[in-house]
Structure formats: structure tokens, C-alpha cells
Amino acid sequence: MAKKQVIEEIKMGAPEYMNTYGDMMTLLLCFFVILFSMSNIDAKKFEAIVVSFSGSLGVLSGGNTLTHEDVIDQGSISDKSNSEITELDNFKQLEEKIKEYLEENNLADKVKVLNEDQGLLLRFQDSILFDQGSASLKSQSNVILKYISDILKSPNFKDKFITVEGHTDNVPIKNSTYSSNWELSVARACNVVRYLIEVQGLDPTRFSAAGYSEYHPVGKNDTVENMGKNRRVDIMIMKSKNFTPTK
């Protein structure tokens, strides 16, 4: 008598338990999406976490920490952020303070104050500091420069670096002292720096001086007024993130 052959049914596709598992994963995903939507995200910390996952978590050799900076020297991300915010507030207050001083002393049309990303820019028209074709500081310029030096000695700005730039219009100059606008622009910047260092006693390592002749104008040299704007000395009080001393 022949034995009956038992043929087992073979089911195609994923096992039945995967339906329940898939439902559970979907519910968990929805749960975490809801939590995420209800939370407050610190953009800088989130960015740091994303960066850290580009390598390992820093446990094994060669891995990345949350930032690429030296952790001990830089401090936490939140500390750095607070420091930057404090500095921005200090620069804003300084801008308002100088503008108020200029208004009170009828100098607002001679000195412009611009709070830029690089730092606080004080733009002096050449007539307030120098006679035409000269790099010798006028005696009345000492008052405004002393006021600026007192600010640079204050606690919030005593560690800031300062750049001083001389600029001219495009009218050629040639006299017994200066053979071109290059020499004049450099001499003017240097004399402002020398006054702040030698007379007002500021730290020389905080300064740099440069002359740009006619080649960095703020406007076209097509009118007397515009040419007057181009003849200037720019003093920039640098924000910390934009300038560090060379060692």
C-alpha cells in the first residue's frame, strides 16, 4: 500500500509577525516626531551633533569630538555664544555713545560711525585731522582722538585690536614732502597710530596702519563733495572673531 505524500504549503512574502512589528515601528516613529515638534531646538548644539556624527563619537582614536576646536581652550558652545552676544551688545552701546558725543560737539558731518560685521568703523574726513596735502595732525584733532583713546582703554575694549587706514582722492599730489598719494595716505595713518601710542599710551601691539592712496574710494571722484568723502582716515575697532594677534 503506497504512503500518502504530504505536501506542506509554502507561504510567500514576509512572516506574519512582521505586520505587527511594522505597525509598532510606525507608531514609535510618530511618537518621536511628535516629541521633536514639541521641543525647542538649539541650532548650534544641533549642528555640533550633526558634525560629530560625520566620524565617530570620539571614543576611538581618530574620532571627532562635538567641535573641531581644542575643548579645554574654547569652553562650551553656549559659553562662546553668550560671549559673542555680550560683545555685540557692547559694540552697539559704543556706537550709540560715540554718535551722541559727535552730535553734542557738532562733528556728526565730519565723523561717521558704522557698526559693521568686522567691527566698529570710525570714518574721519581728512579736514578734521589734517590740512590739505599734509600728514601733520591739527591741534584740534587731539580732542576727538583723545576721546577715542579713552574708549579704547575702557574695560570692554582694552583687548580689542585697531586698524588705521589712510585714503586719498585721485588728484595727484607732488610736493617737497610727498611724491604721491601713496606716501601721503601711509603717513596720515601712521601719524594717527603714533599719536594714540606715544601721546595717549595705548599698547602698540594692538595696532596696524596702512595707506591705500586713491584705490579704495567710497564713491566716484566726480564731484567736490565725493572727493572730500574719499579723503579720509578709517579707524576700525575689530570684533574678537575677526582678528587675533600673531605670535
Rank of each mutant, 00 (worst) to 15 (best):
L137R: 12
G75D: 12
I85S: 10
A209C: 01
V192R: 04
Y21S: 09
F243W: 15
V6R: 14
A135D: 12
N115R: 11
K239M: 09
E8T: 14
L152F: 05
N175V: 09
S179F: 03
K160V: 06
D203W: 00
A2F: 08
Y147P: 04
E214H: 04
S37I: 08
P15D: 06
E84Q: 10
E87I: 01
F36S: 08
N40P: 02
M236Y: 01
S78I: 10
P155W: 04
V193I: 07
F161N: 02
A209I: 00
N105P: 15
P172Q: 02
K3A: 05
T244R: 15
R194Y: 02
T86L: 08
Q125K: 14
K4G: 05
Y178M: 01
Q140Y: 03
V113R: 10
F31T: 11
S127L: 07
W182F: 09
S52V: 10
V51M: 12
D131L: 12
T205P: 00
G119Y: 07
K3Q: 09
N226A: 04
L27M: 11
V199F: 03
S154D: 07
Q74F: 08
G75M: 05
K11E: 07
I173E: 05
K160F: 04
N40G: 10
S180D: 15
K4S: 00
I41Q: 14
V192D: 00
E84A: 10
V218R: 05
E116S: 10
K160E: 00
E225A: 13
K239R: 14
L152H: 03
D126R: 08
E183G: 04
L94E: 06
S136D: 07
E116L: 10
V199N: 01
I34C: 07
E165N: 05
P15I: 06
T20Y: 03
I98H: 03
D117S: 15
I49S: 12
S134E: 05
E103L: 07
G219W: 02
V218W: 04
L122R: 07
N242F: 08
C30L: 11
G13Q: 14
L107R: 05
M1P: 00
F36M: 06
A209S: 15
D150C: 07
V51I: 09
D79V: 09
T20L: 11
E225G: 02
Y101M: 02
T168M: 11
D23L: 11
E47K: 12
S139M: 09
Y215R: 09
F124W: 02
V192L: 03
S76R: 01
